[in-house]
Design a protein around this nucleic acid. Structure first.
Ligand SMILES: [Mn+2]
Ligand SMILES: [Mn+2]
Ligand SMILES: [Zn+2]
Ligand SMILES: [Zn+2]
Lengths: 139, 139
DNA sequence: TGACTTTTCGCAAATCGTTCTCATTATCAT
DNA sequence: ATGATAATGAGAACGATTTGCGAAAAGTCA
């Protein structure tokens, strides 16, 4: 597990200045496992550094997304939800009752997507696969 | 091919009043094959009835969506894009260069999605599968 | 048709998440 | 430490969509 000093290294690797605010935001993302919204990230970052502003949260997220460090998910409903990009590609299942986000991956689906696009004469740049469902009522 | 008188029947079937504006909007949707945005629908509807307003376009689309007559697609980028729900379920491939929307359907993928959700203990209510790609440059 | 009730309309103002402006502050190579 | 300049906070602006409100149109039943 990376400690907070690693965050500084990560930022420097991207050639940007290491600011308190960016460290706080990255720390929040490191700790999160719930695909938080910008507003959640702001609130959590403020615990570590009360000076963090909304504008900086959005700016930092946009910057990290461009750098490939962060993934921005535009699920149905309110605003975007973010997560660190670290691991392998995965798609999401959203619980319509709780809002919980569950991750999954299907090599078969990924392959089929590529085949379909190829048949249509396209190369896929990226894709979005989201399942919206609920747990069947106890029975 | 349905004529415009059919539109009136469609509206009555939904138990709402038949207005010039609604007929114009439905007509536009009937003619469209390009997944138009609300703004496009407004502009096209104005040709038939210049009195149609933006608010009515949004209100009518929301109403038709709730009735299951219209599908609202929230693709990446600007605003939502609409289409009549008539046919069979399909997903979309968006051309990143032209914005063109291509429809496709894979029974295999649909089945895999259901299996994945079932394994996770969920029933899928709806899903979104969008492929974003481009035609390989001529070579 | 005309009076009466209900729905829908256009317009403008409000929302909401996100982006931008700009004066001020902080980082960092020197 | 100093200076160049990147990054920040506060709040205004934005764009798509939604909503409140009084006016107009649609449905109802003589
Ligand atoms: Mn995820
Ligand atoms: Mn379609
Ligand atoms: Zn995937
Ligand atoms: Zn599908």
């Amino acid at each position: 597990m990376n400690d907070d000093a690693q965050l500084e290294t990560d930022l420097r690797a991207e050639g940007v200045r290491v600011t308190r605010q960016r460290l706080a935001i990255l720390h929040v993302l490191r700790m999160a496992s719930d695909h938080p919204r910008a507003e959640d990230i702001l609130n959590r970052a403020k615990v570590q550094d009360p000076s963090v502003s909304q504008a900086t949260v959005y700016r930092t997220l946009a910057m990290l997304e461009k750098a490939g460090t962060v993934l921005k998910n535009e699920f149905d409903g309110a605003g975007a939800r973010y997560e660190l990009a670290g691991g392998a590609h995965h798609d999401h299942l959203i619980d319509l009752d709780t809002g919980e986000v569950i991750e999954f991956h299907s090599q078969k689906i990924e392959r089929l997507q590529a085949e379909i696009a190829a048949d249509l004469g396209y190369d896929i740049e990226w894709h979005r696969l989201e399942l919206y469902g609920r747990r069947p009522k106890a029975r």
